[in-house]
Design a binder for these strands. Sequence first.
DNA 1: CTAATGATGTCCT
DNA 2: GGACATCATTAGA
Length: 219
Amino acid sequence: VTAAGPRPQPAGTPFPRDLFEQDASVAARSLLGVLLVREQDGAAPERRVGRIVEVEAYGGEDDRASHARMGPTPRNAPMFGPAGRAYVYLVYGMHHCLNVVTGPEGRAAAILIRALEPIEGQDAMRAARRPGARLLRDHQLASGPGNAAAAFGIDRGHTGLDLCSPDSGLRLVLPSDGFPDDARIAAGPRVGIGYAGEPWASVPWRFRLTDSPALSRGR
DNA sequence: CTAATGATGTCCT
DNA sequence: GGACATCATTAGA
């Protein structure tokens, strides 16, 4: 993964997959500032674009907070697959969460997308949220993992999709104005995984752009 | 503003 | 049967 800074981004350029072929915690940090693009679908005629502002890294069988902690299962199988693909799961029976698979094939790891700052297609995002949430400000449309997936119309049908391919209807795009400064990035413990015990409950694998208004509630 | 709680499906024990 | 990588709503200070 190369230097930050302005770069032209011709249409049809694939996202650099090698970014996801390193440790999940390193890759997660590098995902901050990257754009998630969802092409229009039947229900949402607008293109939707969001900047990733909050992520969490999850490891393999050793990470007691990871879905991969029990080894391969039908649900977590995508985590053991090739890097750069989507792993989407359902939490609490109703919310979808989008992850980017990292690491070499056979080694489970993934990055949870926890919050996005809407850049384009805010109306489509609002329409995709549950009825009660449609009076929100733009920066709240995708703040939180369940909210982000809902705003982009993501569900388990997207699992396995190659997020690095320019042909995918859901894909990643490098930021046209470069990666954010380290000074804007903060790390802290992951949310909602107290059951994992130490050191997993405290390891600082949640990364966020501190000055973004679109962060999730549990800072 | 914070705290409590119900919704709801899938996976693991 | 219990727990869950959560969210929206309601109740209370």
